[in-house]
Design a protein around this nucleic acid. Sequence first.
DNA 1: AGTGGTGGTCTCAAAAAGAGACCAGCACTA
DNA 2: TAGTGCTGGTCTCTTTTTGAGACCACCACT
Lengths: 136, 136
Amino acid sequence: MDSRTVNLRSKLEVYKAMTDGGSIADCPVRDVIQGLNGKWSSLLTAALAEQPYRFGELRRLVPDISQRMLTQTLYDLQRDGYVRREVFPTKPPSVEYSLTDLGRSMFDALQYLLQWAENNHDAVRDARTAFDATQA
Amino acid sequence: MDSRTVNLRSKLEVYKAMTDGGSIADCPVRDVIQGLNGKWSSLLTAALAEQPYRFGELRRLVPDISQRMLTQTLYDLQRDGYVRREVFPTKPPSVEYSLTDLGRSMFDALQYLLQWAENNHDAVRDARTAFDATQA
DNA sequence: AGTGGTGGTCTCAAAAAGAGACCAGCACTA
DNA sequence: TAGTGCTGGTCTCTTTTTGAGACCACCACT
């Protein structure tokens, strides 16, 4: 608990550091988090954490992602070093995406948040309902 | 490690459940995570985890957020039950935002990811540089 | 010759985010 | 008493991001 509080403080220091610095790249935490808070990043990371997938497999696994966003999100995840892209020279060339060690390490941290979301979605849903009721 | 693997699987099951169900509200994890992956949600949560802040204080603390997005992000966080909004009838009415117990609990989980980001931003930065070099 | 599966790109429309003007109310100052 | 500034916002406009979907070359199989 104590170390967690310390972490919390140091985190905010980092955030503050960026506000002083000016450029967004000056805040490491924001810089990294930005790459993860895309609409599809965590979902695709979770999928690839289970096993490597091909492009078309991911598209079928997540039907409500557009092909365009799938391409781009995978590109971004690859650029940040979370995902590895391998092309196999099969008859129609197939492309496999998998998590790198860095990606796996990141997903371990992300897992806590995903777990929290699963455990507390009722509370959040209730909060929304209650809030909407007062705003009616 | 074992339990983490199980969690990972169950997580993906949840994601899959949503792909079958159809509606986005059918996937609790996505539903909750969506509210958190806004550009400013984690930053404001981190700020409020440190201490309660007034509207203007937050605006000064995070200078590159627009007033419009500050209003809206706080509204969303309040709606999801993470943030409490209190109006004090001072001469010019002042408004204080603070984390609820739910918000604090969520931030505890988010902390792991923020900590990871702080520890690994070098690796991510290096990955980006290396990737951009190959794509030149 | 037509059909389908591979992994994409391109274009255009819709949604979200950013920039900045504007507002009422009150305090303090000149 | 008229200006100035601070409070916490809203409204409008522009730019960026996302979504929907057409299109593409290549090859296998029928």
